[in-house]
Computed example of a mutant assay.
Amino acid sequence: MIEAGPLMRVRLDLTYEGAGFSGWARQPGRRTVQQVVEDALAVALRLPAVRLVVAGRTDTGVHATGQVAHCDVPELPGTLLRSLRGLLPPDVRVLAASVAPLGFDARFAAMLRRYEYRIADAPGGVDPLRRRFVLGWPRPLDVESMAGAARQLVGLHDFAAFCRRREGATTIRTLLRLDVERDGDSGAEIVCTVVADAFCHSMVRSLVGALLAVGEGRRAVDWPASLLDRDRRSDEVGVAPAHGLTLVEVGYPPDAELGARVEQTRARRA
């Protein structure tokens, strides 16, 4: 066993396929990313337990290629990644582990989270090799209309109509970017890129659900923005399925600004 002593903060960069997990956060009797990774870390580091703090708590079925977490441990062995590769199941990997700079906090130091939601509306359906990560849509979608609706949602707003409210949590967010475009030369997939300082529960999938209604022609281009004056969840907004959504990036300020960012974020959340 490692003797107790001063702790170092370690940054972990992770990727996982969300289909087999009940989201990130530990839940009794359920398989979650946090539980699987914490348990593997405890074995690799020969500790009774390891606690992870994550940048973004992904929901059940949501994937990640750019998730970030941190933990405080006595040391960082050079063999940690190799050990974790043998301990972790094939649907989750720790890609990098490094000593974090002073002031780093995976959650509160983050400046932005970037998600991508992928949709395929081709007549033949989704590429079978992509079916676990792309939503197949049975009807053609008007991407220009979806993009026009998306532009009206960018900025600082109360997104209550698009969020599942949690007691004591604010639904005011700064949506930095919401783009809708066809991906690549073939245009086989539509990509909704969503970037914000933070997200409330189900916000990304609800935004995509509203844009899908516009893309099908069931709603006008200005309809999603018209919901921003509501103070509670709108029953008119559908929630897009989880498997099309992937957390692809968490952005942080320069090292010298990490502490100030943590203080700013904590004050705003309070």
Score class of each variant (00 low, 15 high):
residue 147 A to C: 06
residue 160 A to C: 08
residue 173 R to S: 00
residue 176 L to F: 10
residue 142 D to S: 08
residue 186 S to V: 09
residue 156 L to T: 11
residue 161 A to C: 09
residue 155 G to P: 01
residue 173 R to Q: 02
residue 178 L to I: 10
residue 189 E to R: 09
residue 177 R to C: 11
residue 180 V to C: 14
residue 188 A to R: 15
residue 183 D to G: 02
residue 178 L to H: 10
residue 170 T to F: 05
residue 167 E to M: 07
residue 149 A to G: 04
residue 170 T to G: 14
residue 189 E to V: 14
residue 182 R to Y: 03
residue 151 R to Q: 15
residue 174 T to H: 12
residue 151 R to F: 02
residue 145 S to Y: 01
residue 153 L to E: 09
residue 165 R to H: 14
residue 179 D to L: 08
residue 178 L to C: 15
residue 158 D to F: 05
residue 174 T to R: 11
residue 144 E to H: 10
residue 157 H to Y: 02
residue 166 R to V: 15
residue 144 E to G: 15
residue 186 S to M: 05
residue 189 E to H: 11
residue 161 A to M: 06
residue 165 R to P: 00
residue 162 F to Q: 06
residue 169 A to V: 13
residue 175 L to Q: 02
residue 174 T to D: 11
residue 157 H to W: 06
residue 188 A to K: 09
residue 148 G to F: 00
residue 158 D to T: 10
residue 176 L to K: 10
residue 186 S to C: 05
residue 171 T to A: 11
residue 158 D to E: 07
residue 184 G to R: 09
residue 150 A to K: 06
residue 182 R to H: 03
residue 174 T to I: 03
residue 179 D to K: 04
residue 170 T to C: 08
residue 157 H to D: 00
residue 161 A to T: 12
residue 179 D to I: 07
residue 154 V to E: 03
residue 147 A to M: 06
residue 179 D to G: 03
residue 165 R to Q: 12
residue 151 R to T: 14
